[in-house]
Simulated scan of single mutants.
Amino acid sequence: MSKINKKSMGQFFTPPQIADRLVQLLEQQVGFALDLGCGRGQLGKSILKRFPLARYVGIEKDREHFNHCANLLTEQTIICADVLEEKALSLISDFMPVDTVVGNPPFLEIPISNHLVLEVKDAIPNFLSSGYKMRSEMLFFAKSLKQLKLGGQASFILPKTFFISEQYRYFREHIIDNFSNISLFELPSRIFSGAEVSTCILYFNYRKTKNQQLTLGCIDANGDIENYLKIDSAAAVTRMDFSYHRLMSESGIRIEESETIGSIGGLIHRGNMSRNELVRKSVPHFHTTSFPINEIEISLDDDVKDGIRFGQEGDILLARVGTRCLDRQVLVTAGKRAITDCIYTIKLPEADIDTVIASLSSKYGKLWRQINAKGSCAKYLTKESLLNMPLFN
């Protein structure tokens, strides 16, 4: 299958070393494992390598991948069917429920329907839908969860946004309220061939535990656990990612007590024209490539035409988009210049300018922006995340 077709179907196959790590996180013996959207069978192969006596059931709709998986796992149950169709799970009803579910579901949006919403709510009652589409990963996870017996275990690759976005707070609450022995490990952004996506491996036991601690960590490209820490469940509701909690721990900042760019009256504006538009108009401009090296101040001396947003004396300029330049910022000490739509200006009370530029320039200020950047490939910062950035003193 071509890379284009794989991407359009949200298929990013699990590298062997990551599949092995996902299976190594399983704490209990595997008797019967279910893998919805099993692809070419890498998770099944890793399960049988560690648990030779396990039984494995995989469902895959792509005929080519189904054939590969069936030939790889000849003594296991592999079914060619579309998990999104109601009849798919009826084909494996004789095997359900299972003691283990695993998965690396397709990463894409699918049209929402009342039927699909009810399916997710059946497993995750506090599920919140919005708009006309939903994440297929949420549906695959919910369908898998419905087939897991009480006391069973799960190990799943899911988007990092499920664990950091306010939109998915309900998901984190459900995990914390209903599961135990929860661990979440961040994966490298380029671990899947042909994609730069932010993902995590979630592991848990299907039983309730009160006042538990969660294990958060990160995994390197070899599948090894690089680092980890433990947090209380109350802290995990807001965010569950290791990067964030390590940053807050190392910086000594308590987010609920700290001042933020927004709380001190900061205002953020984005340029209103692209670089190409400004070039066509022959307007001198400030772009992501304009940041000086090793300097935090800049003097500008250009006139600005009406209708074009600009940065001026007292403004802090910083990159809005660009994976490699999100940690750049500069204070305008004189003059003004048009800015592209890839640049933000931060306007502040004069008394707070030095504090904010120092915070943005600090190790923790740069890490904050990297951790809070959104997007799969071209990373970008939202005004909301910047306004909520604590002042690292």
Results as ranks from 00 to 15, higher is better:
379 K>M: 08
83 V>G: 11
35 D>C: 11
129 S>H: 14
311 G>Q: 10
262 G>S: 04
75 E>G: 05
183 S>A: 13
222 N>P: 05
233 S>I: 02
292 P>V: 03
145 L>A: 13
258 S>V: 04
293 I>T: 08
86 E>Y: 12
49 K>W: 05
213 Q>N: 12
235 A>K: 02
58 G>H: 07
329 Q>D: 06
310 F>N: 11
128 L>M: 14
114 N>P: 07
309 R>A: 10
284 P>S: 01
159 P>Y: 09
369 R>S: 03
344 Y>H: 10
317 L>A: 05
11 Q>K: 05
158 L>S: 13
148 L>I: 12
296 I>N: 06
358 A>Q: 05
281 K>A: 03
295 E>N: 06
365 G>A: 01
134 M>E: 11
330 V>T: 13
22 L>H: 06
221 A>Y: 14
329 Q>R: 11
155 S>N: 12
319 A>F: 09
126 N>L: 12
156 F>R: 01
322 G>V: 03
287 H>C: 04
118 L>D: 15
315 D>M: 04
278 L>W: 08
178 N>T: 15
55 R>I: 10
113 S>G: 15
130 S>F: 14
265 G>F: 08
120 V>F: 03
168 Y>V: 00
119 E>P: 06
392 F>L: 00
187 L>V: 10
338 A>W: 04
117 V>A: 14
309 R>V: 13
183 S>C: 13
65 H>R: 12
275 R>H: 14
51 F>Y: 15
48 L>Y: 00
157 I>Y: 14
355 T>Q: 01
98 V>I: 05
159 P>L: 09
295 E>W: 01
121 K>V: 13
237 V>G: 02
264 I>A: 07
70 A>P: 00
276 N>W: 04
358 A>M: 02
360 L>K: 02
137 E>Y: 06
135 R>P: 10
156 F>N: 10
33 A>E: 06
170 Y>N: 07
84 L>D: 09
372 N>T: 09
300 L>A: 03
118 L>C: 14
12 F>I: 01
345 T>C: 07
384 E>L: 04
377 C>G: 08
215 T>Y: 06
245 H>M: 07
67 N>H: 01
190 R>K: 08
345 T>W: 07
39 G>P: 13
216 L>T: 06
47 I>Q: 08
187 L>H: 03
86 E>I: 09
250 E>I: 02
17 Q>C: 11
48 L>A: 05
286 F>C: 05
267 L>W: 05
344 Y>D: 02
265 G>S: 05
309 R>K: 15
18 I>D: 06
213 Q>K: 14
149 K>Y: 13
112 I>H: 09
284 P>Q: 01
370 Q>H: 06
294 N>R: 09
328 R>N: 11
334 A>I: 00
101 V>T: 15
76 Q>T: 06
181 N>K: 15
366 K>R: 07
266 G>V: 01
30 V>F: 10
314 G>P: 00
240 M>E: 03
26 L>Y: 13
116 L>Y: 11
83 V>W: 00
335 G>S: 12
192 F>C: 03
199 T>H: 07
80 C>T: 03
95 F>N: 10
380 Y>C: 02
82 D>M: 00
11 Q>V: 13
19 A>Q: 08
357 I>G: 09
177 D>G: 03
384 E>I: 02
247 L>A: 04
202 L>E: 14
135 R>N: 14
225 I>Y: 12
181 N>D: 15
